[in-house]
Write a protein that binds this DNA or RNA. Structure first.
Lengths: 242, 242
DNA sequence: TAGTGGTCTAGACCACGTG
DNA sequence: ACGTGGTCTAGACCACTAT
């Protein structure tokens, strides 16, 4: 007899929202243990199964990591073997590849309209431009140009990047509290222009994979734009479809 | 006091296995409704919640599709709006793209070692080679070479492909009962060779995205190998990372 | 109105990791 | 031995779809 509720939202979704808030406001930091399911159930006044379903979704989105017998941890780009979580490369021989990065430059500039649009900021807002290469066995095979809205990365310098021995995302997470949660990539084939050819030690005109990535943190806020040029004669970009 | 079971397998995983068997042996065909959760619970002698968790995983893997109030259906490459489930392209303007395919040839040949390895069959086993283009607004922008182990596609001809107005996967599903469930892609940038340049109306040497896809059906059995060359100056290959 | 999947609960027990 | 997440159950109720 009761009318159906047009704005129905499952309890576990609301709990999920509360958990995301606690993650976002830093109540639980990357790498830390969050309270147990029963404790959270008590805190929010719901059953343990409802908390479980909320955490299930967070785990599916890689915001947290469950470890049986130990607890649930906030996901981190550091110290996990989740290094290079977003970079899926396989060598032609079929092995996974671990690149080594070399930072070339960091500049503070004003965003052009192109970059501003893709970062959802105002044109002429300040951004850092980071250039680097990723190499395998000493040979640079990826050249990245990375735009970071300056507002969220105050104090970024080339020296700090070069001094850091973790992943870029690991560094940005621990130094600026910016957590990369999700990204969208658009991939094309292009011809190497002079700068790319130079950085990658290939002739101009060499076909390169161009990967444009927009990365997001909580609430889908854009916090990185990146264009990478890949020399793919020894390896491939790997993707799985379901 | 009881010793832990080293070969522990959750009940819902076993149920999932039974459900997959029924899907595989054709008890429920693509597009059909499968029995309700309560009925399956009765059949297997478990609770409805256990069946639910099994079906949850099948739905997450796109083997079945749940529709609230109606039931659970076997996934299909036909009649769904799940057309081109594995092809994620976006135009530079940001819209999704719906290609139109043109079949060029079908040949029955013996697999070379390269193809045989990637299809997990014996060299010199017979395979069909299908060539086609995908176009947008009449302009061919993707050239595909598709290898299909002949054993599973008896009677495939160019005429049948040309006569069919559904997706390739939709056709292979209804004509041969082969369901593409999962695929792995390796992507590179290459220079257009003569055949590709010819088919795609671009000069030789044009940078092309080369997408090599291995497709699998139940039990991860390889049932397709495909190499596609994409002219990516008007659109991109889209990928989402989590 | 009947049947389906979707949510929520409460409680029991198991497997895993750590002391 | 203890606490955690993981499984399983049984039952109640809600939302959606079809008839």
């Amino acid at each position: 007899m009761a009318p159906p509720n047009p704005t129905f939202s499952p309890l576990y979704q609301q709990i999920k929202g509360l958990l995301i808030q606690s993650l976002q406001n830093g109540e639980w930091k990357p790498g830390e243990l969050i309270p147990s399911e029963t404790e959270l159930a008590g805190r929010y006044g719901v059953s343990q199964g409802t908390v479980r379903k909320a955490i299930d979704e967070l785990a599916a989105e890689n915001l947290v990591v469950r470890k049986q017998g130990r607890g649930t941890f906030v996901a981190t780009h550091n110290e996990d073997r989740a290094q290079y979580r977003f970079l899926r490369l396989v060598s032609d021989a079929g092995q996974a590849l671990v690149p080594k990065s070399t930072y070339l430059s960091v500049d503070r500039v004003r965003a052009n309209t192109d970059v501003a649009t893709l970062l959802d900021i105002k044109p002429s807002d300040p951004v850092f431009v980071v250039k680097r290469t990723l190499g395998f066995e000493g040979i640079p095979r990826i050249f990245d140009e990375i735009w970071l809205p300056a507002a969220q990365y105050k104090g970024l310098t080339l020296e700090r990047l070069q001094a850091c021995d973790s992943t870029l995302y690991g560094f940005l997470e621990s130094a600026f509290g910016v957590r990369m949660l999700r990204a969208v990539e658009n991939i094309k084939a292009v011809s190497a222009q002079s700068e790319q050819a130079d950085r990658l030690h290939v002739p101009e005109g060499t076909p390169l994979l161009m990967v444009e990535r927009q990365s997001m943190t909580y609430a889908d806020q854009l916090v990185e734009l990146r264009r990478g040029w890949y020399v793919t004669d020894q390896f491939s970009y790997r993707n799985e479809l379901y």
